[in-house]
């Protein structure tokens, strides 16, 4: 059991099994849509978790990259008749480049300064999207043309369920491989102590930048996926609250846990749907649950439970 848990492919395999198993359980398109939203959020959260959980850097502007990815598949096909898939890649490329250029000066900063700098960056992107209405449709958003693959129009909740599920599994697989690579080791060293990592010969600024770029690409792809699923984008996807939501998902599920990213995303996407029955007390209950989880399971749900199980079952 412990060997299984320790295996580096445990998380992606578990996620793949969940995606397949749920497809047989979920009764209607509504549930499939909620699941697809979970997969999309989880994808962005895995990327952010690489940055927060493994490299120990906080980004409060990740929705900026998410929004850029979303608007890439909306704007590029509409303005330049680019195929949505190429637009998705272009969005990811642009986000990677922006993260590279912006990251170089920002990642010299530490702690709160880094958080504030990324916060500013995210807000800047959100403002640009809301204000350049000739390009982005402004605060009311703009439609996204339907994705066509080999003459087949991609639509329907179950189709998107499988596409987003596959994206998530791919993202999780890439993430665990990254973590297991020499780069991953350098990142963890950096997380534990930047000074020690530097003494051990790790190029701190270089590795921080790499992981920032990678996490930006994850967010961008997730944003593109959401825009394609919805067929419509609004600046909400890039706003500050969404950045906070992503960070909360990371912390709730467990920093440094790929599977925790899925759990965190699942809780924050599914719970509001469950709690609508409580009407006025919805936000109260959501806040209460988050507080209790953070107090009882201090290092996030998955790592805390894993540690608990390891202790009780020697």
């Amino acid at each position: 059991m412990r060997a299984l848990l320790a295996h580096r492919l445990a998380a992606p395999v578990a996620i793949a099994l969940i995606v397949v198993a749920l497809a047989f359980v979920l009764p209607s398109n509504f549930y499939l849509r909620v699941a697809a939203l979970v997969w999309i959020s989880a994808l962005a959260v895995i990327g952010l978790n690489l940055l927060m959980g493994f490299a120990g850097q906080v980004s409060l502007g990740h929705a900026g990259f998410f929004g850029l990815g979303a608007y890439a598949v909306a704007v590029l096909p509409a303005q330049f008749s680019l195929h949505p898939l190429l637009a998705l890649l272009a969005g990811a490329l642009v986000c990677g480049l922006i993260a590279f250029v912006v990251g170089r000066p920002i990642l010299r900063l530490k702690g709160h300064y880094l958080a504030v700098a990324t916060l500013g960056f995210g807000i800047l992107i959100a403002m640009a999207i809301a204000n350049e209405s000739w390009l982005t449709g402004g605060p009311d958003g703009m439609p996204v043309s339907r994705l066509t693959l080999f003459g087949w129009r991609v639509r329907g909740a179950s189709t998107w369920y499988w596409i987003t599920g596959a994206l998530l599994v791919l993202g999780a697989w890439l993430a665990v491989n990254l973590v297991a690579s020499p780069t991953g080791r350098a990142l963890r060293a950096l997380h534990d102590s930047e000074v020690a990592a530097r003494v051990a010969g790790v190029d701190v600024a270089h590795y921080k930048l790499i992981v920032f770029v990678i996490s930006a690409v994850y967010a961008s792809v997730a944003g593109s996926a959401l825009a394609l699923v919805n067929g419509f984008v609004t600046p909400d996807s890039a706003n500050f609250i969404h950045s906070i939501e992503l960070v909360t998902m990371v912390v709730l599920g467990g920093m440094g846990s790929v599977f925790g990213s899925l759990v965190g995303a699942a809780i924050l996407v599914v719970l509001p749907q469950v709690l609508t029955t409580f009407h006025d007390y919805e936000h109260l209950l959501l806040g209460l649950m988050m507080m209790v989880i953070m107090i009882v399971l201090r290092s996030g749900i998955v790592p805390s439970l894993a540690a608990l199980i390891r202790r009780t079952r020697p």
Binding site: M1, L4, A14, A21, F259, L305, A306, I309
Partner: peptide, 13 residues
Amino acid sequence: MTTLMKRMGLAAL
């Protein structure tokens, strides 16, 4: 352990 985690996640969903 993986199965357990999987079940927990599944059960939650």
